[in-house]
Design a protein around this nucleic acid. Structure first.
Lengths: 100, 100
DNA sequence: ATTAAATATTTATATATTTGCATTTGTAAT
DNA sequence: ATTACAAATGCAAATATATAAATATTTAAT
């Protein structure tokens, strides 16, 4: 068992990570970042058609919870997946939401 | 691409499913149900040390969002994973929360 | 030093979630 | 029909989350 004894801290960490992902806009963001892609706040805000501040907020949550990383280059900040494995979470869901 | 056009309804469905899972107690529940195990409300409530009504509530959420199924047998109601694939979501998380 | 562009933060409001207690419903046995 | 156990529901208080408008910060160019 990888969660040693279902330790409360690890459950919290995992739950927070999942909670970060569990939002329609944030899933959409992850989908756009699959395969190691890197996008700026503005690009995402335009792709999704949501407010800049809202976009930044969502990205902040994903970064804070360890789902994304960011790297500033000049005026732009590029966001990208921290663990590419995380695409699997979304992919797994897709499989489950298909045949219903 | 499996989400056809990142369709809003599918994003919602996926988000709701993830939201259902994204809670420490509910992740703990899933861990106990891995491998096709079936447990009653009381068993889970005792395993986790939380209130019966709280347990039932969590199970209701997981069932409602398509994560669990239930089957009544006499006075007991057994809960179990609807898609065993879903263990992968938890497993994937474990992998991501290990080396940090 | 000004200006402009890209991000981030603050703030306020609306909405949703979590939890336990008390109650109710469902099922089986006497 | 009464009793007992299992599970679900209604409720209320505490807490958390989402959104957008306004503001602030960071960086680059002039």
């Amino acid at each position: 068992m990888q969660f040693k004894e279902l330790d409360a801290d690890r459950l919290d960490t995992a739950a927070n990570m999942l909670k970060a992902i569990a939002h329609p806009m944030r899933i959409a963001i992850l989908k756009h970042l699959e395969g190691g892609k890197k996008l700026t706040v503005t690009q995402i805000h335009e792709l999704l058609g949501i407010e800049q501040s809202t976009t930044s907020h969502h990205l902040g949550i994903l970064k804070d919870k360890g789902v994304l990383c960011s790297r500033r280059e000049g005026k732009n900040t590029f966001y990208y997946l921290k663990h590419d494995v995380l695409s699997q979470v979304v992919d797994c869901l897709e499989r489950c939401t298909c045949g219903e």
